[in-house]
């Protein structure tokens, strides 16, 4: 196969390659950006919880309004997300409750409520569990694409505006309190942002794979970056590279697009883990053996 067939042709057969790549990119970038702050606050697992509790949020909104309009869905998910993160924190701060258990208890319980609601009263509605969990990036609807087109820039803008506070609250909440910053507000804004970003990406990549975009780019970037803005930049680059390479892989081998995207993301993480210039496992080992060789040569000469 010629390079032209491999790289150019997928873009010319209908609009789905364009739309899929755009949707996945718009889903990935805000998740990756917010994921950096979750990662640095050791809250990555919260993302797992928030994506799951979005389900009861969406179903509850549907039951109340009877509509599947994107905006109420987003608000419902964000509200349940904020509620869940409050419940998790409240539970975790009690004596004798472990914080990891608190996360697990709250999100599985709320998710189960969502599953029950879904199995009974809204069975006839077109809430496609398969789609919510795994996404359908090649068959993305106009509404979802539009929603992502609004949410992604909005999330990035909010992060840019709140940059200083987000950074300080993540690094040293004690100093943030001392300086009189609204620490609780920043925390819930971040949680709400994560809920909105994940719900907006449901149709593109699905709830479970949204978690991958929150955790993996940030984890990769942390290995490579030593400044906060560099870390965010690398996380975004990681996310976009995963999308593009993943889309090609899916087309060439006729595989699940979202599955490929996340696998590529994982492979990039592995590469950074092994070969990062300073902290990579292989790099450090090579450096050590090079040093040993030099040392033994010196001792032989001496």
């Amino acid at each position: 196969m010629s390079p032209h067939e491999l790289f150019i042709e997928p873009w010319t057969i209908g609009a789905w390659m364009w739309r899929g790549t755009l949707a996945a990119s718009l889903a990935a970038v805000p998740c990756a950006v917010l994921g950096v702050f979750l990662y640095l606050r050791r809250l990555s697992l919260i993302a797992d919880a928030l994506t799951h509790v979005a389900l009861p949020g969406i179903v509850a909104v549907f039951l109340m309004t009877g509509s599947m309009e994107p905006l109420p869905m987003l608000l419902g998910a964000a509200a349940v997300g904020a509620l869940a993160s409050y419940a998790i924190e409240n539970l975790a701060s009690r004596d004798g409750v472990r914080s990891d258990a608190a996360i697990g208890i709250v999100f599985t319980a709320l998710f189960a409520v969502g599953v029950i609601l879904l199995s009974t009263s809204v069975q006839n509605a077109h809430i496609d569990t398969q789609c919510v969990l795994f996404g359908d990036v090649l068959g993305i609807s106009d509404e979802s694409l539009l929603l992502l087109g609004v949410v992604a820039p909005l999330v990035c803008l909010c992060v840019a505006l709140g940059w200083r506070w987000l950074g300080l609250v993540s690094f040293d909440p004690g100093l943030a309190v001392n300086l009189g910053l609204p620490v609780a507000f920043v925390h819930y804004a971040l949680m709400g942002g994560v809920s909105v970003a994940t719900v907006a990406s449901f149709e593109a990549i699905g709830a479970i794979l949204a978690i991958a975009f929150i955790i993996v780019p940030a984890a990769t970037a942390h290995i490579l970056a030593d400044r906060l803005h560099v870390m965010v930049g690398i996380a975004v680059a990681h996310a976009l590279t995963s999308v593009l390479v993943g889309m090609y892989t899916a087309v060439w081998f006729d595989l699940s697009a979202s599955g490929c995207i996340v696998c590529v993301g994982g492979a990039l993480y592995a590469a950074a883990f092994l070969f990062a210039p300073r902290h990579g496992v292989m790099t450090t080992a090579l450096r050590r053996s090079a040093r040993r060789r030099v040392a033994s040569r010196i001792s032989r000469v001496a």
Partner: peptide, 23 residues
């Protein structure tokens, strides 16, 4: 604090001015 956090010495000392700078 987490000393693996991606900030430089200068970044951290700058934080001392955040109270005066606002957002």
């Amino acid at each position: 604090v987490d000393w693996d956090f991606p900030v430089t010495v200068l970044d951290v000392v700058n934080q001392g001015r955040y109270g005066h700078l606002g957002l």
